[in-house]
Design a protein around this nucleic acid. Structure first.
Length: 572
RNA sequence: GAUUCCGUAGCUCAGCUGGUAGAGCAACGGCCUUUUAAGCCGUGGGCCCUGGGUUCGAAUCCCAGCGGGAUCACCA
């Protein structure tokens, strides 16, 4: 392992601490009597508080001025300044704890526990005057240093790759990141609370499924050894939840991680979360009201208001939301009434609107395409779009009065779908026909067509009550509720391509070649991390370079000649 | 998958009309007892993403690859 200068210094500090009898990673219960945020909030109102306070956190900043120092520590709630005075920390003759431990051996990033009293500095900063401190955890890697003045951030840690790969670092250094995830959890809590209050049952259904269904998507495939069978990671849980409705529950819901083997973008991660809900004896009209009510509550619970800032817009989730049929909204934005058009007429209309369509698309797909191109992105305030073409909705009930449409709606806001719902199709014979139509699409090469689930059909044949179903994209909704531009910002650990590990030979491999351990570190420093790299090297150059390092670092080992280096290469 | 931009010190970035690297912060050594992205003096730190090519000479130009961002396509 090649360590940077700063990492070596920190590892040395660690050894020094141990020599001083300080355990750099102590175990125990470290009592804390306040948080940074709490002190900031309450102390200005009552300055008799916190006169004997203990807090713990990570050192984020240090300013050492001889016998006194300021530091900032960060706990879960935020940052607070510390003031350390040598003679307070070390009242006796021995000034080691301040001069050596605090000033030399602690670093930004270390986690400490302090005890003292709160006061306000001349500059007006609420500060803990530290009487006593102890190290709780030594950091061996330097933290990116982000500085802030008057609300302006300098040298922000912004590289998306590092932020997502090392989310822990992102959270330490960019505290607003933690806030996003707190909001996400509040949002989910709010939904759960709402659904439980209605008496619906939260359930769990299989993630590993022998048949994938409930949506049109490519699955991830895996294999179970004992059963020697292919299993799929679920793309949706719809068909299982409906089985539970058949089984007699009147309301079931599940927050489910679903998996789709498709492209990635700022709106798509291969694993994502949906909340699906099914309620017996209801229809899609009823479900729209539930969605409005629930989303309004979420906004209130997360933000304390129904108005949420998203990008350049303020989105108001206050009920009731506008409702348009798909035909109405298309007419609204294009001035063209496409209801009643034949497939050919639709094709011509699409062309006129500059919407790309191809020969394989049927009527429903063309309508959906026109909607997607001309309407969706322009719908900023929450709105329900209803009555989708039936061909696009193989699990939704046919519209009770309009031919060719399904009783389906999507809620759209900020130009993106946030939920999809319908009056569920409970006619087993119609469902079978729809599946068969999907199979036909599959035979024509549609890789995302649904497959026929005989057991699900069997369940329907036993009779499913009329029901309304809903799927909400939790990540999408979280993006809106947290004003995030990318799905990666609302997932702790978004999917990334793995970093390639550098091939590295072990120390033992090198020692077997007869390389003294004193030289090993320096060979690695020069970039020879594998035996192969060593074998390929020019022994004269390597000996030269190593002797250079020997001189520069005043190493206590004899100088090398290239014959010795040659003897390390190629095993006899 | 396509197009396009990016990859230089621990972090943020400059250098890119080719001459083997700079700044600020961080680190290290000093000075400084309430400072405010503290300040001052000094020091060290770099496989300039990887591999090829062009060239006397490449961080810089060309090609390929790896990783990331953005846009588009599929989709939630």
């Amino acid at each position: 392992m090649n360590l940077s200068e700063q990492e070596i210094i920190r590892r040395n500090s660690l050894q020094e601490l141990i020599k001083l009898g300080i355990d750099p990673y102590p175990a125990g219960i470290f009592e804390v009597s306040a948080s940074a945020a709490e002190i900031h909030e309450k102390f200005p109102k009552d300055n008799t508080l916190y006169q004997d306070v203990a807090i713990a956190g990570r050192i984020m900043n240090r300013r050492i001025m001889g016998a006194a120092s300021f530091a900032e520590i960060q706990d879960d709630s935020g940052k607070i300044q510390l003031y350390l005075k040598r003679d307070d920390i070390c009242p006796g003759e021995d000034k080691t704890m301040y001069n050596t431990v605090f000033k030399k051996l602690l670093d930004i990033g270390d986690i400490i526990w302090v005890k003292g009293y709160v006061f306000i500095t001349k500059m007006g900063e609420i500060t803990v005057h530290v009487k006593q401190f102890s190290l709780l955890s030594k950091a061996l890697r330097p933290l990116p240093v982000v500085k802030e003045k008057d609300g302006e951030v300098y040298d922000a840690f912004t590289d998306p790759e590092q932020r997502y790969r090392q989310r822990y670092l992102d959270m330490i250094v960019n505290p607003q990141v933690k806030e996003i995830f707190v909001k996400r959890t509040k949002m989910i809590d709010s939904m759960r609370e709402f659904l439980n209050a209605k008496g619906y049952l939260e359930v769990e259904t299989p993630i590993l499924q022998p048949l994938y269904g409930g949506a049109a998507a490519k699955p991830f495939k895996t294999h179970h050894n004992t059963l020697d069978m292919t299993l799929y990671l679920r793309i949706a849980n719809e068909l299982y939840l409906k089985r539970l409705i058949v089984g007699g529950y009147d309301g079931v819901y599940e927050f489910s991680k679903d998996f789709r083997n498709e492209g990635m973008s700022r709106f798509h991660n291969p694993e994502f979360t949906q909340m699906e809900l099914y309620v017996a004896y209801k229809d899609y009209e009823w479900m729209m009201e539930l969605v409005e009510e629930m989303t309004e509550k979420i906004a209130l619970d997360v933000h304390g208001t129904t108005k949420v800032e998203v990008g350049d817009h303020v989105i108001d989730f206050k009920r009731p939301w506008k409702r348009y049929t798909m035909f109405e909204i298309i007419e609204h934005f294009t001035g063209i009434d496409i209801s009643g058009m034949t497939e050919n007429e639709l094709r011509l209309t699409a062309k006129k609107l500059d919407v790309e369509v191809d020969e394989t698309m049927g009527k429903g797909k063309i309508i959906d395409e026109i909607f997607g191109e001309t309407c969706e992105a322009r719908l900023i305030q929450p709105v329900f779009i209803t009555d989708y073409p039936v061909e696009m909705s193989p699990l939704a009930r046919k519209h009770r009065s309009l031919d060719g449409l399904a009783e389906r709606f999507e809620a759209i806001c900020n130009g993106k779908e946030i939920c999809n719902a319908f009056t569920e199709l409970n006619d087993p014979l119609d469902q079978r026909k729809r599946f068969e139509a999907q199979l036909e699409l599959g035979r024509r090469g549609d890789q995302e067509s649904m497959i026929l689930d005989e057991d699900f059909l069997r369940a329907l044949e036993f009779g499913m009550p009329p029901a309304a179903g809903l799927g909400i994209g939790i990540d999408r909704l979280a993006m809106v509720m947290t004003n995030s531009q990318s799905i990666q910002d609302v997932l702790f650990f978004p999917q990334m391509r793995p970093q390639q590990k550098e091939a590295v030979s072990t120390d033992e491999d090198f020692k077997e070649r007869g390389i003294p351990s004193a030289w090993l570190q320096w060979i690695r420093t020069l970039g020879y991390n594998t035996l192969e790299a060593l074998d390929k090297s020019n022994p004269n150059k390597l000996a030269n370079d190593l002797n250079g390092l020997r001189k520069k670092n005043k190493l206590d080992v004899p100088a090398l000649n290239s014959e010795v280096v040659k003897s390390w290469q190629f095993p006899q």
